[in-house]
């Protein structure tokens, strides 16, 4: 590229940047949409890009330099030399070995002790009080997300909804999928857990904890969208595909005298993914 062209491009680019940057400020002050500001900013940077490119191509004299490296470091000799140097320079210190040992012992213990309070970042004092009661217990009513109790005519056959334990709607592991099956297809085992065709499972996937929200009505399968695990509703939510290996815990249901659905008792298996140490 000739010097003249390069100069023209460099100056042109800089002028483009100046005008675009000013346009950007004006666009900001006039509260224009983001893409107008973005367009001005793009042009501004493009101007600099063109300018620098022109400069590098046409206005810099090519040059090469050669630097000598330091002598290649010796292998074992260097380490000893460094250690010996430190020792030699510490000659003014009486009992340097004792100094080193004391510093290490005292400083090390102090350093470790100083880190221990970090523990409360993981377990703040409030959570270490008396254990909260399990959200799902015998007799707890099922409620929807707004807290209204679930009546036995809430779902039609073939429907699915999400329910929570009364008093613990915000508990992140307490959500439950409620499905209403045709009473004739409710599995025989645990039939008393499913009054009027209602069957309930924990919504927390036993793989890594995403909500198992998808339901394929005709196949009676629950599907987790995160890693495509599928659970067979007619077989106790046993996993039939995907990486989950444990079934979703089932919640035993009962309908009380007022027609509201309640839990007969809490979950018999741990909810959700297995934490380390959980048997």
């Amino acid at each position: 590229m000739s010097e003249r062209t390069a100069l023209r491009l460099a100056v042109g680019g800089a002028i483009l940047t100046i005008f675009s940057a000013l346009a950007f400020v004006v666009a900001f002050l006039l509260d224009t949409p983001y893409y107008a500001m973005g367009f001005c900013a793009t042009l501004a940077f493009a101007g600099i890009a063109v300018s620098f490119w022109a400069w590098s191509t046409g206005l810099v004299t090519p040059k090469r330099v050669v630097e000598q490296r330091d002598v290649a470091p010796q292998t074992t000799g260097a380490e000893l030399a460094l250690g010996q140097t430190v020792v030699a320079e510490s000659s003014g210190l009486t009992r340097p070995e004792l100094f080193a040992v004391l510093s290490l012992a005292a400083g090390g213990t102090l350093g470790v002790a100083a880190l221990v309070p970090l523990r409360s970042l993981a377990f703040p004092p409030a959570t270490e009080g008396p254990a909260k009661p399990e959200p799902w217990r015998a007799g707890v009513r099922l409620v929807d997300v707004d807290g209204a109790p679930i009546h036995h005519d809430w779902l039609t056959i073939g429907a699915i909804g999400t329910v929570f334990p009364e008093g613990a709607i915000d508990d992140p592991t307490a959500s439950v999928v409620l499905i209403r099956l045709d009473p004739r297809v409710v599995p025989r085992a645990r039939r008393d857990w499913s009054p009027e065709g209602y069957i309930a499972f924990s919504k927390i996937c036993t793989h890594v904890g995403c909500p198992v929200a998808l339901y394929r009505k005709t196949q009676h399968e629950l599907l987790c969208p995160c890693h495509q695990s599928r659970f067979d509703v007619l077989d106790g939510a046993r996993p039939i595909a995907g990486p989950a290996s444990r079934p979703l815990p089932q919640l035993a249901l009962t309908i009380d005298d007022t027609g509201v659905l309640r839990a007969s008792h809490g979950f018999l298996e741990p909810i959700g993914p297995a934490a380390w140490g959980q048997t």
Binding site: F45, A49, F52, V60, K63, V66, E67, R69
Partner: peptide, 23 residues
């Protein structure tokens, strides 16, 4: 193994690098 040959940092390499960065 004992040397490095190349463009000097300034002005050659720095200008090219700025052109690259601005793109």
């Amino acid at each position: 193994e004992a040397n490095v040959i190349g463009a000097p940092m300034w002005p050659n390499y720095a200008i090219v690098s700025l052109a690259f960065g601005s793109l």
